[in-house]
């Protein structure tokens, strides 16, 4: 305890080895698959893996920020389904693409604001409010998908995820580049700007943060909007890729994101988490699924494996953190 306080006084952080867990795990699985399979380490396979990751990645941004603040948003999965289909519905009603997109984004922001205002105003557990929003949005997107049955989205909508860029003679989706840039920018801002540090302070100790004059309620409210917005953008991208209102979009995404955020070091008690590591964790989950297909393991087993990994990761996390804080 004494040593810890001295080290904080000197402002020298001891390097936290647990933060590397997910990276080491990913590298290990990656190396294993590379060594045991010929088809794994091909450009096409890796490219499609990263491409798959880039869709859920957008939802994970807001989700991780909320977890850093000690809140949770379970409505992200339904939001993925809703935002894409709502944009499709607006297009189906004959709106030009640009205004339709603006209306869709605005509605998504509105939904995030409802979540935020209820949680902040009435101090209700965010899990309950967003569970309600999740149910409502799932119902809405169900309604939309039955109404949009047999309708294919217009070309302007479908073109969003299409553009590719050639790097070293291979065609790479622009979306992947955007994802990498966003990760780099967010990671940089996390370390260099005060706005993002405030989130950690709020998550670590709400009362202390308030004493230091951090407007916790306002930050939380904005983060709920960001969470809905990023999930909404992800949903529009998925809609653009799938090109019709598939009723299966977004099912179970909230649990995937939760798993990814927790594997990436976030804690349900707040104060911890990282976008970079959460993104790596999504890639890790995709790797496992990919590896099971490559090695002819029944993909139905992947749920069991993900569940076990989740429990072990959190168990280790609790043990390590208890050792350092108590």
């Amino acid at each position: 305890m004494e040593q810890k306080s001295i080290s904080t006084l000197n402002n020298k952080k001891k390097f936290n080895w647990t933060s590397l867990t997910i990276i080491i795990l990913t590298l290990a699985v990656f190396g294993f698959l590379w060594a045991t399979s010929d088809t794994f380490f091909t450009f096409a396979n890796i490219h499609s893996l990263v491409y798959d990751t880039s869709f859920i990645f957008f939802g994970v941004i807001g989700f991780t920020y909320l977890m850093i603040m000690g809140e949770i948003d379970l409505s992200v999965g339904s939001m993925f389904a809703f935002s894409g289909m709502w944009l499709g519905m607006l297009c189906d009603w004959g709106l030009p693409f640009a205004p339709a997109l603006i209306i869709a984004i605005a509605s998504v922001i509105g939904i995030g604001a409802i979540n935020g205002i209820l949680v902040v105003r009435f101090r209700v557990p965010s899990m309950m409010i967003t569970l309600g929003m999740m149910t409502a949005l799932a119902g809405l997107s169900n309604l939309l998908s039955t109404n949009l049955y047999g309708y294919y989205y217009p070309d302007a909508y479908r073109a969003i995820v299409r553009p590719t860029i050639s790097i070293g003679g291979e065609e790479v989706f622009v979306l992947i580049i955007i994802m990498i840039v966003i990760i780099a920018v967010l990671e940089f801002m996390l370390h260099k700007t005060t706005i993002f540090r405030k989130m950690y302070y709020v998550g670590e100790n709400l009362d202390t943060a308030k004493i230091y004059g951090i407007k916790a309620a306002k930050i939380k409210f904005i983060t709920f909007i960001i969470s809905a917005l990023t999930a909404g953008i992800g949903g529009i991208l998925v809609g653009s890729r799938v090109a019709y209102a598939a009723p299966t979009i977004g099912i179970g995404y909230e649990f995937q994101m939760l798993t990814a955020a927790v594997l990436g070091g976030a804690s349900l008690f707040g104060g911890k988490g990282s976008i970079l590591r959460a993104s790596i964790a999504i890639f890790f989950l995709q790797l496992i699924r990919n590896g099971m297909v490559i090695h002819n393991i029944d993909p139905l087993l992947s749920q069991i494996i993900v569940g076990i990994i989740l429990i072990i990761a959190v168990y280790l996390d609790t043990r390590v953190n208890k050792a350092t804080t108590v």
Binding site: F255, L268, D298, I304, G307, I308, L310, I311, Y315
Partner: peptide, 27 residues
């Protein structure tokens, strides 16, 4: 055991067992 002995948050531990036994049923 997971919640009380291992100290894992009930949300995470029961989501984990939810995955595991749904997966086992499907398998």
């Amino acid at each position: 055991l997971l919640v009380e002995m291992a100290g894992i948050n009930p949300l995470i531990s029961t989501i984990g067992t939810m995955y595991i036994f749904r997966g086992a049923t499907e398998f």
